[in-house]
Simulated scan of single mutants.
Amino acid sequence: MGIGGISIGSLLIVLVIVMLLFGTKRLRNVGSDLGGALSGFRKAVRDTEETRDALALDAAEQTPVRAESTSRQA
């Protein structure tokens, strides 16, 4: 028995049918497009985390300055 009650033989039959319907070239294009999209998503998440960290660091550095300026005005 394979994954979730589906045997390996059944998975191979489904794979062969998909290859016959779509062809290997189209499946290769779909795979490369999916890989590119996943890579772009990971890069966007990484850039967002770096931006968030930079903004948090910048806000932490500016917080005492704002407190001093408000106490001078009061």
Rank of each mutant, 00 (worst) to 15 (best):
M1I: 03
G2T: 05
G4M: 12
G4R: 12
G5N: 00
I6W: 05
I8Q: 14
G9S: 14
G9M: 07
S10A: 15
S10L: 11
L11G: 09
L12Y: 13
L12R: 14
V14N: 11
L15C: 04
L15I: 03
V16Y: 05
V18G: 02
V18N: 00
M19Y: 13
M19Q: 14
M19L: 12
L20V: 11
L20W: 10
L21W: 06
F22G: 00
G23C: 03
T24L: 11
R26M: 08
R28P: 01
N29W: 02
N29C: 02
V30G: 01
V30I: 07
G31S: 01
D33A: 10
L34Y: 05
G35K: 05
G36A: 10
A37H: 07
A37C: 09
L38Q: 07
S39E: 14
S39K: 15
R42S: 11
K43Y: 15
V45A: 09
R46V: 08
D47A: 15
T48S: 13
E49D: 15
E49W: 14
E49V: 15
T51G: 10
R52A: 13
D53Q: 10
A54S: 12
A54Y: 13
A54M: 10
L55T: 15
A56L: 12
L57W: 13
A59P: 04
A60F: 05
A60K: 09
A60I: 03
A60S: 09
E61C: 05
P64F: 05
V65D: 07
R66Q: 06
A67K: 07
E68R: 02
E68F: 05
E68N: 00
S69F: 06
T70Q: 06
R72E: 01
R72S: 01
